[in-house]
Design a protein around this nucleic acid. Structure first.
Lengths: 192, 192
DNA sequence: TTAAGAAAGTGATTTCGGTCACACGTCCAT
DNA sequence: ATGGACGTGTGACCGAAATCACTTTCTTAA
């Protein structure tokens, strides 16, 4: 294995695009590479959430569990997304959510202190603002389809928005995201 | 009516807090004051969405209508919130959402061009990023309570998070936000 | 190759919440 | 004061989806 494989490169994260070469060299070591196996937890319940994670490759789910251990999926995050338990990250408190890999995945972790530092020093807040707005719009669409609570429409919206994800996510997991039972989901996409 | 009443002051919008007096003078004229009566539309369907609105006082609802004119409420916005039809604002296209006043409300509108300009010139992106992250966390909580779709829990979460809003919003409107029928909402808070 | 487990399909039954219908009260404007 | 608009409460009914129980198919690892 060569050295080159272990060090982060400028086009590994789109965040670096707006930085000069010297700025990139300043910040590159703040991003900590880590590899997880399918099924591994990046964040487990009650972890202290020290990092926000850039997903370099793979697929993860951000979930919440209720009192009877029923799972609900807040979001899927795949290549080029940032994800973490945001309430816990921002307040530097214990997680109430879990972040678990649906595939082998590679991440770059950025600590809270380093995150706040680069916002100020390199005015990268515009980058994160854009990501956040996109997320906000996606969330609103999600809320809308949940409000309408028509299982068929929800499934079809997912199909339309994320056709490529459909192959990567088991139906038994997808239903935890759509908020419908495994059985109705199964019955859905055959009667169409 | 005196002059002073018509001009924007530094503590009218928390955004101005991070600006020096001279910076404030530079940008203050970009914010356009407008007053709406209860029931008025700030954004009607198919409007070109030119502004993002800071709610100075009052209460508005951001809604979506489906094909049979059924209404769904994406969010309520009250004092010190920014609101608009974000997809339409960011792409400068026609609105698919409506923004309507539940009370007499005062707003400061900021145009898209001026918005993008002040992000760069005065690095106010950190301010908007913080607002956006807060919105993101609120949206995730909302998604979670919709996923669980237990009417009782949804109502109780709203009660807990926004107790003061409860008095300002008719039950017949609240149910469009909670995603439950007027009747079940009515039956809910007496059998507890 | 096979055994074990995970994921998915399907029928039967139940239940929660939506819809419909109507009554009641309050607040204005005529 | 009267009529109308609006917001709300409540009963009866019905249907879509959850739940339960079981089978079948697909993975994966020994």
């Amino acid at each position: 294995m060569q050295d080159a494989d272990l060090s982060i490169k400028k086009d590994d994260i789109d965040l670096f695009a707006s930085l000069s070469d010297s700025e990139f060299l300043e910040v590159k070591d703040l991003f900590h590479y880590k590899k997880y196996k399918k099924g591994a937890f990046i964040i487990a319940e009650n972890d202290l959430v020290k990092h926000v994670y850039f997903i370099r490759s793979g697929l993860v789910k951000l979930s919440c569990f209720d009192d009877d251990h029923k799972e609900f999926i807040l979001s899927f995050a795949h290549e080029n997304w940032w994800e973490t338990d945001f309430p816990a990250f921002y307040n530097q408190t214990k997680s109430t959510l879990t972040l678990q890999c649906l595939e082998d995945t590679e991440t770059y972790g950025l600590s809270f202190d380093d995150y706040t530092a680069i916002l100020d020093k390199h005015s990268l807040s515009k980058y994160f603002l854009e990501k956040s707005i996109k997320g906000h719009i996606a969330n609103q669409n999600r809320i809308l389809s949940l409000l309408k609570h028509k299982p068929k429409e929800q499934y079809e919206q997912f199909l339309q928005l994320y056709p490529s994800l459909l192959q990567r996510i088991p139906k038994s997991v997808l239903c935890l995201y759509l908020g419908i039972s495994r059985e109705t989901l199964s019955r859905l996409y055959k009667t169409r």
